[in-house]
Amino acid sequence: MTALGNTRLAFIETLIELAEQDPKTVLVCADSVLVVKGKEFARRFPDRFIDVGIAEQNAVNCAAGLAACGLVPYVATYAGFLTMRACEQVRTFVAYPGLNVKLIGANGGISAGEREGVTHQFFEDLGILRTIPGITVVVPADDIQVRQAARALHKLRGPAYLRIGSGRDPRADCQDIPFELGKIRILAEYGKDVVLFTNGFVVNRALQAAERLAREGIRAVVADVHTLKPLDVHGIVSLLKQTGAAVTVEDHNIIGGLGSAVAECSAEECPVPVKRVGLPDCYPRSGTPEALLDYYHIGINDIVEAARAVVRKKKT
């Protein structure tokens, strides 16, 4: 049984810590204070808590105005309402002018949808943001990495997106491996038969798949691509060259996210067999997180099967 962490709480606790150190830190919500566990922030820093109501476009624009005047606003609400409803505001008024606005998207992925169904499951956020120039995109593996990422992003001057989950998010158990923004992390290395690139709240599944693969003689290396943009092209290509076969594992549509990013790298720099494990470009449904991931082919079996397939392909 995988241990669970709480990425929402991890974010807000880190934000409170940052707000204590930096008086420019502001939390902007769109009736999302409960979603992001922001009550304590609002109690501690009432002047620096802004809630514009259920109005994400307004929230992002207000943040742009705040940032243009030197503050560091964090807009925190559901991932899809930020990246889809307020997409244009993110692009034109935050990313284009390069303003120092941080966007925090909850319910990232199908597993973090809290059984609410498609309206609250967000599996397009990363693909959308990856096409917008000038924005840093981070997909943490678990609550511990959320803390590390939030601290790193606060130091970064410029627009950034941080994906968080439902609050019941599987632990990847890799906190001892140092986190550096923009650099992949090697989480496990059984050998160089195949590389599993992964991020988000399915990193634990990629690690379990690698363990199972090792038992059947396929030695995998597992790489955490937590920073999807800017992509660590050098690190990815290096692993592609060393292994000659890759599988991507993500809780996102297989179009636009990690799978696409790795496939683009591979096609341009090091063509090798690649298989993408993720939501197979369809609408999911309500369900518990683990059951959903298995049902939509993001199961440990799916990862193992994909790894076997690319290794076979490499040999022929």
Binding site: L66, E88, F93
Partner: peptide, 25 residues
């Protein structure tokens, strides 16, 4: 130029952010 603009409808909410920023600064 204090704000990028041209996509219609957005100026008032950016202005609101600037007014709230004045209070904080």
């Amino acid at each position: 130029i204090d704000s990028t603009s041209g996509s219609l409808g957005n100026g008032i909410s950016i202005g609101l952010g600037m007014v709230l920023a004045a209070r904080l600064t």
